[in-house]
Design a protein around this nucleic acid. Structure first.
Lengths: 120, 120
DNA sequence: TAGGTACGTGACCAAGTAGCAATACGTCGA
DNA sequence: TCGACGTATTGCTACTTGGTCACGTACCTA
Protein backbone atom coordinates (compact mmCIF):
# COMPACT_ATOMS: atom_id res chain seq x y z
CA UNK A 1 0.00 0.00 0.00
CA UNK A 2 2.85 2.32 0.80
CA UNK A 3 4.14 1.45 -2.63
CA UNK A 4 0.82 2.35 -4.19
CA UNK A 5 0.80 5.62 -2.34
CA UNK A 6 4.27 6.42 -3.53
CA UNK A 7 3.25 5.57 -7.06
CA UNK A 8 0.15 7.74 -6.76
CA UNK A 9 2.13 10.62 -5.30
CA UNK A 10 4.75 10.29 -7.94
CA UNK A 11 2.11 10.35 -10.66
CA UNK A 12 0.49 13.41 -9.17
CA UNK A 13 3.86 15.12 -8.91
CA UNK A 14 4.68 14.28 -12.51
CA UNK A 15 1.32 15.66 -13.59
CA UNK A 16 2.07 18.92 -11.81
CA UNK A 17 5.52 19.13 -13.35
CA UNK A 18 4.11 18.38 -16.78
CA UNK A 19 1.52 21.11 -16.31
CA UNK A 20 4.24 23.61 -15.51
CA UNK A 21 6.20 22.61 -18.60
CA UNK A 22 3.02 22.91 -20.65
CA UNK A 23 2.62 26.53 -19.62
CA UNK A 24 6.16 27.17 -20.79
CA UNK A 25 5.68 25.28 -24.05
CA UNK A 26 4.28 28.25 -25.97
CA UNK A 27 6.56 30.74 -27.73
CA UNK A 28 4.20 33.63 -27.08
CA UNK A 29 4.18 32.99 -23.34
CA UNK A 30 7.96 32.69 -23.35
CA UNK A 31 8.16 36.01 -25.17
CA UNK A 32 5.94 37.63 -22.58
CA UNK A 33 7.99 36.26 -19.70
CA UNK A 34 11.21 37.21 -21.44
CA UNK A 35 9.89 40.73 -21.93
CA UNK A 36 8.89 40.93 -18.27
CA UNK A 37 12.44 39.96 -17.37
CA UNK A 38 13.29 43.65 -17.61
CA UNK A 39 10.85 44.47 -14.86
CA UNK A 40 7.18 45.20 -14.29
CA UNK A 41 5.21 46.28 -17.37
CA UNK A 42 1.68 47.35 -18.22
CA UNK A 43 -0.40 45.27 -20.62
CA UNK A 44 -0.12 47.89 -23.35
CA UNK A 45 3.66 47.85 -23.14
CA UNK A 46 3.69 44.06 -23.24
CA UNK A 47 1.51 44.06 -26.34
CA UNK A 48 3.80 46.60 -27.99
CA UNK A 49 6.86 44.54 -27.11
CA UNK A 50 5.74 41.06 -28.13
CA UNK A 51 3.24 41.83 -30.87
CA UNK A 52 -0.09 40.11 -31.41
CA UNK A 53 -3.65 41.07 -30.62
CA UNK A 54 -4.69 42.37 -27.24
CA UNK A 55 -7.16 39.55 -26.66
CA UNK A 56 -4.52 36.90 -27.08
CA UNK A 57 -1.95 38.62 -24.89
CA UNK A 58 -4.56 39.04 -22.19
CA UNK A 59 -5.44 35.38 -22.45
CA UNK A 60 -1.82 34.24 -22.19
CA UNK A 61 -1.27 36.58 -19.26
CA UNK A 62 -4.21 34.88 -17.59
CA UNK A 63 -2.59 31.49 -18.14
CA UNK A 64 0.70 32.71 -16.70
CA UNK A 65 -1.10 34.27 -13.75
CA UNK A 66 -3.02 31.11 -12.93
CA UNK A 67 0.22 29.14 -13.14
CA UNK A 68 1.76 31.50 -10.60
CA UNK A 69 4.49 32.58 -13.01
CA UNK A 70 3.46 36.25 -12.95
CA UNK A 71 1.80 38.62 -10.48
CA UNK A 72 -0.84 41.23 -11.24
CA UNK A 73 -1.25 44.77 -9.94
CA UNK A 74 -4.06 47.12 -10.85
CA UNK A 75 -3.65 50.87 -10.84
CA UNK A 76 -6.64 52.74 -12.18
CA UNK A 77 -7.26 51.68 -15.74
CA UNK A 78 -3.84 50.12 -16.10
CA UNK A 79 -2.84 46.60 -15.11
CA UNK A 80 0.80 45.74 -14.46
CA UNK A 81 2.43 42.34 -14.58
CA UNK A 82 5.76 41.12 -13.28
CA UNK A 83 7.55 37.78 -13.11
CA UNK A 84 6.69 35.98 -9.87
CA UNK A 85 8.88 32.90 -10.23
CA UNK A 86 12.54 33.49 -10.91
CA UNK A 87 13.15 29.83 -11.69
CA UNK A 88 11.83 30.59 -15.16
CA UNK A 89 15.11 32.19 -16.13
CA UNK A 90 17.12 29.29 -14.78
CA UNK A 91 14.93 26.86 -16.69
CA UNK A 92 15.45 28.79 -19.91
CA UNK A 93 19.17 28.96 -19.38
CA UNK A 94 19.38 25.22 -18.75
CA UNK A 95 17.38 24.43 -21.87
CA UNK A 96 19.46 26.88 -23.89
CA UNK A 97 22.73 25.29 -22.86
CA UNK A 98 21.31 21.86 -23.54
CA UNK A 99 20.15 22.88 -27.00
CA UNK A 100 23.47 24.52 -27.68
CA UNK A 101 25.33 21.33 -26.84
CA UNK A 102 23.00 19.31 -29.02
CA UNK A 103 23.34 21.64 -31.99
CA UNK A 104 27.11 21.79 -31.62
CA UNK A 105 27.23 18.00 -31.65
CA UNK A 106 25.11 17.90 -34.79
CA UNK A 107 27.33 20.45 -36.51
CA UNK A 108 30.39 18.41 -35.64
CA UNK A 109 28.72 15.28 -36.98
CA UNK A 110 27.89 16.96 -40.25
CA UNK A 111 31.36 18.38 -40.60
CA UNK A 112 32.99 15.02 -40.07
CA UNK A 113 30.65 13.57 -42.68
CA UNK A 114 31.73 16.28 -45.11
CA UNK A 115 35.36 15.51 -44.33
CA UNK A 116 34.69 11.87 -45.16
CA UNK A 117 33.16 12.82 -48.50
CA UNK A 118 36.18 14.96 -49.26
CA UNK A 119 38.51 12.12 -48.40
CA UNK A 120 36.63 9.72 -50.70
CA UNK B 1 18.59 45.67 -39.26
CA UNK B 2 20.80 44.33 -36.51
CA UNK B 3 17.81 44.79 -34.28
CA UNK B 4 15.60 42.86 -36.64
CA UNK B 5 18.13 40.08 -36.80
CA UNK B 6 18.32 39.92 -33.06
CA UNK B 7 14.55 39.80 -32.90
CA UNK B 8 14.43 37.04 -35.49
CA UNK B 9 17.12 35.09 -33.72
CA UNK B 10 15.40 35.54 -30.44
CA UNK B 11 12.12 34.32 -31.87
CA UNK B 12 13.78 31.26 -33.36
CA UNK B 13 15.50 30.54 -30.06
CA UNK B 14 12.26 30.92 -28.15
CA UNK B 15 10.57 28.54 -30.57
CA UNK B 16 13.29 25.96 -29.94
CA UNK B 17 13.01 26.38 -26.19
CA UNK B 18 9.23 26.10 -26.36
CA UNK B 19 9.58 22.92 -28.38
CA UNK B 20 11.81 21.42 -25.73
CA UNK B 21 9.33 22.32 -23.01
CA UNK B 22 6.55 20.82 -25.10
CA UNK B 23 8.33 17.48 -25.18
CA UNK B 24 8.55 17.57 -21.40
CA UNK B 25 4.92 18.65 -21.00
CA UNK B 26 3.50 15.15 -21.04
CA UNK B 27 3.25 13.03 -17.86
CA UNK B 28 3.84 9.80 -19.76
CA UNK B 29 7.10 11.07 -21.24
CA UNK B 30 8.18 12.32 -17.83
CA UNK B 31 7.44 8.90 -16.40
CA UNK B 32 9.54 7.27 -19.07
CA UNK B 33 12.46 9.63 -18.47
CA UNK B 34 12.13 9.24 -14.74
CA UNK B 35 12.18 5.47 -15.14
CA UNK B 36 15.26 5.70 -17.33
CA UNK B 37 16.92 7.70 -14.58
CA UNK B 38 17.92 4.38 -13.04
CA UNK B 39 19.89 3.49 -16.14
CA UNK B 40 19.49 1.93 -19.57
CA UNK B 41 16.35 -0.16 -20.07
CA UNK B 42 14.76 -2.24 -22.81
CA UNK B 43 11.39 -1.27 -24.22
CA UNK B 44 9.67 -4.18 -22.48
CA UNK B 45 11.01 -3.10 -19.12
CA UNK B 46 9.94 0.48 -19.76
CA UNK B 47 6.44 -0.68 -20.63
CA UNK B 48 6.29 -2.79 -17.48
CA UNK B 49 7.49 0.13 -15.38
CA UNK B 50 5.31 2.95 -16.67
CA UNK B 51 2.23 1.06 -17.87
CA UNK B 52 0.25 1.72 -21.02
CA UNK B 53 0.15 0.05 -24.40
CA UNK B 54 3.30 -0.83 -26.30
CA UNK B 55 2.33 1.27 -29.29
CA UNK B 56 2.03 4.40 -27.20
CA UNK B 57 5.27 3.85 -25.33
CA UNK B 58 7.06 3.28 -28.60
CA UNK B 59 5.56 6.49 -29.97
CA UNK B 60 6.60 8.54 -26.95
CA UNK B 61 10.08 7.01 -27.07
CA UNK B 62 10.24 8.18 -30.66
CA UNK B 63 9.36 11.71 -29.61
CA UNK B 64 12.01 11.66 -26.89
CA UNK B 65 14.56 10.26 -29.33
CA UNK B 66 13.89 12.90 -31.95
CA UNK B 67 14.17 15.57 -29.28
CA UNK B 68 17.58 14.19 -28.35
CA UNK B 69 16.52 13.44 -24.79
CA UNK B 70 17.24 9.70 -25.08
CA UNK B 71 19.59 7.48 -27.04
CA UNK B 72 18.78 4.16 -28.70
CA UNK B 73 20.78 0.96 -28.91
CA UNK B 74 19.73 -2.17 -30.73
CA UNK B 75 20.88 -5.61 -29.68
CA UNK B 76 19.23 -8.42 -31.58
CA UNK B 77 15.51 -8.22 -31.05
CA UNK B 78 15.83 -5.92 -28.08
CA UNK B 79 16.07 -2.15 -28.16
CA UNK B 80 17.54 -0.26 -25.23
CA UNK B 81 17.03 3.37 -24.33
CA UNK B 82 18.91 5.64 -21.98
CA UNK B 83 18.75 9.29 -21.00
CA UNK B 84 20.95 11.35 -23.28
CA UNK B 85 20.51 14.78 -21.72
CA UNK B 86 21.18 15.07 -18.01
CA UNK B 87 19.69 18.55 -17.84
CA UNK B 88 16.32 16.84 -17.66
CA UNK B 89 16.87 16.01 -14.01
CA UNK B 90 17.97 19.54 -13.20
CA UNK B 91 14.91 20.91 -14.96
CA UNK B 92 12.64 18.64 -12.95
CA UNK B 93 14.32 19.55 -9.71
CA UNK B 94 13.98 23.26 -10.44
CA UNK B 95 10.30 22.91 -11.27
CA UNK B 96 9.75 20.77 -8.21
CA UNK B 97 11.28 23.31 -5.86
CA UNK B 98 9.33 26.08 -7.54
CA UNK B 99 6.07 24.17 -7.17
CA UNK B 100 6.92 23.36 -3.58
CA UNK B 101 7.41 27.03 -2.78
CA UNK B 102 4.18 27.94 -4.49
CA UNK B 103 2.19 25.28 -2.67
CA UNK B 104 3.73 26.20 0.66
CA UNK B 105 2.76 29.82 0.09
CA UNK B 106 -0.79 28.79 -0.72
CA UNK B 107 -1.00 26.64 2.40
CA UNK B 108 0.21 29.53 4.50
CA UNK B 109 -2.34 31.82 2.89
CA UNK B 110 -5.16 29.42 3.64
CA UNK B 111 -4.00 28.91 7.22
CA UNK B 112 -3.87 32.62 7.89
CA UNK B 113 -7.37 32.92 6.45
CA UNK B 114 -8.52 30.17 8.81
CA UNK B 115 -6.86 32.01 11.69
CA UNK B 116 -8.77 35.14 10.73
CA UNK B 117 -12.05 33.21 10.74
CA UNK B 118 -11.23 31.86 14.16
CA UNK B 119 -10.42 35.31 15.41
CA UNK B 120 -13.76 36.64 14.11
C1' DT C 1 12.10 -21.18 -45.12
C1' DA C 2 8.38 -20.80 -41.50
C1' DG C 3 7.02 -19.06 -37.45
C1' DG C 4 7.57 -16.37 -33.31
C1' DT C 5 9.11 -12.39 -30.76
C1' DA C 6 10.19 -7.37 -29.96
C1' DC C 7 9.45 -3.16 -31.59
C1' DG C 8 7.89 0.52 -34.93
C1' DT C 9 4.39 2.74 -37.98
C1' DG C 10 0.11 4.47 -40.18
C1' DA C 11 -4.61 5.67 -39.68
C1' DC C 12 -8.00 7.23 -36.83
C1' DC C 13 -10.58 9.59 -33.06
C1' DA C 14 -11.29 12.61 -29.22
C1' DA C 15 -9.64 16.26 -26.35
C1' DG C 16 -7.29 20.46 -25.72
C1' DT C 17 -6.00 25.09 -27.19
C1' DA C 18 -3.84 29.23 -29.77
C1' DG C 19 -5.47 32.85 -32.31
C1' DC C 20 -9.19 35.86 -33.76
C1' DA C 21 -13.45 38.74 -33.72
C1' DA C 22 -16.92 40.63 -31.07
C1' DT C 23 -18.43 41.97 -26.83
C1' DA C 24 -18.43 42.83 -21.81
C1' DC C 25 -16.40 44.91 -17.73
C1' DG C 26 -14.39 48.40 -14.78
C1' DT C 27 -12.46 52.95 -14.33
C1' DC C 28 -11.68 57.57 -15.38
C1' DG C 29 -12.61 62.54 -17.09
C1' DA C 30 -16.19 65.86 -18.43
C1' DT D 1 -24.55 60.50 -16.34
C1' DC D 2 -22.08 59.75 -20.44
C1' DG D 3 -18.66 58.55 -23.40
C1' DA D 4 -13.81 57.01 -23.77
C1' DC D 5 -10.23 54.11 -22.60
C1' DG D 6 -7.65 49.82 -21.00
C1' DT D 7 -8.27 45.24 -20.11
C1' DA D 8 -10.85 40.79 -19.71
C1' DT D 9 -14.00 37.39 -21.49
C1' DT D 10 -16.74 34.61 -24.65
C1' DG D 11 -17.69 31.97 -28.75
C1' DC D 12 -15.70 30.18 -32.55
C1' DT D 13 -12.50 27.81 -35.92
C1' DA D 14 -8.45 25.42 -37.25
C1' DC D 15 -4.92 22.76 -35.82
C1' DT D 16 -2.20 19.73 -32.93
C1' DT D 17 -1.60 15.55 -30.47
C1' DG D 18 -2.11 11.55 -26.95
C1' DG D 19 -4.03 7.19 -27.01
C1' DT D 20 -5.57 3.12 -29.53
C1' DC D 21 -6.04 -0.48 -33.13
C1' DA D 22 -4.30 -2.93 -36.81
C1' DC D 23 -0.55 -3.95 -39.38
C1' DG D 24 4.36 -3.77 -40.86
C1' DT D 25 9.31 -4.66 -40.05
C1' DA D 26 13.54 -6.65 -38.24
C1' DC D 27 15.67 -10.33 -36.07
C1' DC D 28 16.11 -14.83 -34.12
C1' DT D 29 15.42 -20.06 -33.91
C1' DA D 30 14.38 -24.44 -35.58
Amino acid sequence: MAEDQNRELSDAALALIAERFKVLAEPMRLRILHTLGGGELGVSEIIAAVGGLQANISKQLGVLLQAGLVRRRKQGLRVFYRVADATFFELCQLVCSSLHERLAAQVEEIESAVALRKGA
